[in-house]
Amino acid sequence: MQDRPTSVELLEAAADFVDRELVPAIEGAKQFQARVVANVMRIVAREIQLEDPAVRREVKALAKLLGHDAPHLHSLDDLRKAATGLGAELSAKIRAGDADAGAWRTEVLAVVRQSVEDKLRVANPRYVEADIAARSAAAKQS
């Protein structure tokens, strides 16, 4: 068990320094790279906080979609491997045309969308929020 600050607190402190102190002090290509560095650190901080529940939910949803019993897994590493294996199985079914039409396609689209949104909540939360807002505005219009 490590002492405080937590990994997330450390990363946020480092990203804040880059954004507030370093970026204004440099220019051009290096400044752009520094912004990327801060962004990468914030991605990792969000991943530390969000990955565990997201990958558990993803494994459960994929298993159900593919007609498997939900595996009982505890370690994050096992969950990641399960998500990858189930994702590959789903990919093969899509490639074979199983999700071209029909009720199962609707279920597939919902599960895949959930997984993609979870990735974006880590990588670019504003992007997924804007997408959800635009979709709900479009749904209200129609």
């Binding site: 990858t84 994702g87 990919s91 899509i94 999700a99 071209d100 597939v108 689209l109 895949v112």
Partner: peptide
């Protein structure tokens, strides 16, 4: 390096 079911759907 990972499965991308969204891309598989797009290819179909």
């Amino acid at each position: 390096l990972e499965p991308h079911p969204a891309f598989e759907l797009a290819f179909r």
